[in-house]
Structure formats: structure tokens, C-alpha cells
Nucleic acid binder design. Structure first.
Lengths: 141, 141
DNA sequence: AGTGAGATTTAGAATAATTCCAATAAACTA
DNA sequence: TAGTTTATTGGAATTATTCTAAATCTCACT
């Protein structure tokens, strides 16, 4: 069963090219690290994982790569309060559940139409291009 | 027509007392400043407005007061990406619309039941105590 | 009114995440 | 392969916020 909800490593260089950006070993590796363990890591955590494979990479580059991937829309940046930004390669429409006791983040699939329904509460004159839904609480397990 | 959606200045000292906290001129003033101009100011902006009336107040105190008001649930803290936290005395259930071209923030009233409906998409085992909805886009005007 | 305990305020130092910068290196193009 | 553009790098800088320790205030009790 193939997963159509995320870009594949193979398609990354194409996606980058479509935005006029270059495929580099650093960008590929940062993306692969995000795909391998989908636990919404921070830039620091991505840096640590990436350094294991490419010890010479710099933190600034990790920030640059993450920013690039977000621009290309193959990765989403997620924020909770003012905590460090977390990164998520899930491209399906989804909400986030932030477990306040563990600090962990879970993706919540959205039923089709929910985002449009939520958008429909906007009064005239509001033109929204994105809706974000964040739950906070405690998740079993 | 009275506005029941926010605590009144008069009720603040009572609300504070209920949490075992003292009413102080600084806390009252910070709260009044938030009520007077409901444009989701940052701590720095609150500091500037408050200093006009109480020139000796410190930024640390403004942070402390805002934090206290948030704890008492008479003020909500709102974050967009990693920008500075903004403060909002609207206690009605509402979403936020973040205008990306002006940086301004608008409250969007929620129809009754919407939050419960959104919460109902959570799978078993997720116990949420708050739902936040953020729109991004362009608002007319 | 006076005293002590605890709460609050204050200025400045410290922190954390991120961005900026200028130099080097790598990648595409002609 | 030379030249131009794009990307990476390490370190300094920035920003919002929190921490710290001392001074001040408030309240309850005498």
C-alpha cells in the first residue's frame, strides 16, 4: 500500500526543481530524517539525527533546509505557544493534538469537508488560505 | 447593552481573590489597557501603553501581570508562529484570523456547538481540554 | 499603630530559538 | 571549464521571554 500523503524522497528533487531550487545532499538528508521518524522533531532534534549521518552539517543549514522544505510545501511547521518550531512531513489535511503531560504531538486526520465547514464561519470580507486546528489535552498511552 | 464577554475592571479584584491573588495597581492597569484597545497587543505594546499612565512600571512586571491574568482566565494568550505572544481579553469562544498582509488579528465568533463538533473528530483515547482555530489570509479593509 | 510573613515589583542578567552575516564551497550554464 | 548563481558554514547578533535577588508592598494579627 503506497502512502500518497507525503512526498517520497525520489520526488523531492523534482519538487525542489519546480520551485527553482537545487537538490542538495543536505536537503535530501533533512527530508529523509523527517520521513523516517515522524515524531514532530524540533530543529535541534533534526540536527542531531542528521549529524549522525553527515557529521559536518551545520545547525544553520538544518534551519535553511527546513525552511526550504516548508516553502516547497513538502513539510509543515507546527508551533505550540512559544515552544520551538516542530516539523511534520504529513501532507494530508490534519489537525494537531498536543499532549500537555508528555509534550508529544499527534496528527489527527480531518474528515473531508471539515476544513471547508470551519472556513464557512468566516464573515464576508475574510479570505483565508489556511486553517489550523490545535487540540490540547491528554492522550491515552 | 452590557458586554458579558469579558470580565469588567470591577470584577478583576474579585477574580484575583478567588485565585488567592492580590489586586494591585499594576494588574488593574494592565487589564484596563487590554480592555481599552482590543487589538491583540504584544507585551511590549502593553508595556508602552501602561507606561503612559504609570511611568515607573517595569517590563518584567507587565510580563508578570499578563501571565497572572492568563492564569485567572480573564485574558487569553495568542501565538502566531514564533511571533511575540499577543493578549486578548475576549472571553467568548472565538477563533483568530491572522491577516498576513497587515499582521493584524481579528476575533471570529464561533457558532454554538462548533467547538464540540470539531472536538468530535478526535479518536478514542484523546481527551482535549481546549481547541484553538487559527485562520490565515487577507481581510478586506 | 507595629510587626512579621508572604506576595509583588523591579532592574538587570541570563536563556533559548532563530536569524543574520560574510566567507567558502558546490552546482548549473554557456 | 569559466563564470554565475545558489547553498553551506561558523559565529555573531537578535528577539522575546524568563530568571534572580533585592526592595517594596499588603495583610493579618497584636
Amino acid at each position: 500500500m503506497s502512502d500518497t500523503s507525503t512526498a517520497t524522497p525520489e520526488s523531492l528533487s523534482q519538487t525542489l526543481a519546480e520551485s527553482g531550487l537545487r537538490s542538495t545532499p543536505q536537503r535530501e538528508l533533512v527530508f529523509n530524517v523527517l520521513l523516517k521518524k515522524r515524531d514532530h522533531p524540533t530543529a535541534d532534534e533534526v540536527f542531531a539525527r542528521v549529524k549522525a549521518e553527515m557529521p559536518t552539517i551545520s545547525l544553520a543549514t538544518v534551519y535553511n533546509c527546513l525552511e526550504t522544505l516548508v516553502q516547497c510545501r513538502v513539510v509543515r511547521a507546527v508551533n505550540f505557544e512559544r515552544g520551538p518550531t516542530r516539523y511534520c512531513p504529513n501532507q494530508k489535511p490534519h489537525a494537531h493534538f498536543h499532549d500537555e503531560s508528555t509534550g508529544s504531538t499527534h496528527d489527527i486526520d480531518l474528515p473531508p469537508g471539515l476544513l471547508d465547514q470551519v472556513k464557512s464561519i468566516l464573515p464576508d470580507g475574510y479570505d483565508s488560505n489556511s486553517v489550523e486546528i490545535i487540540f490540547r489535552g491528554k492522550a491515552k498511552d
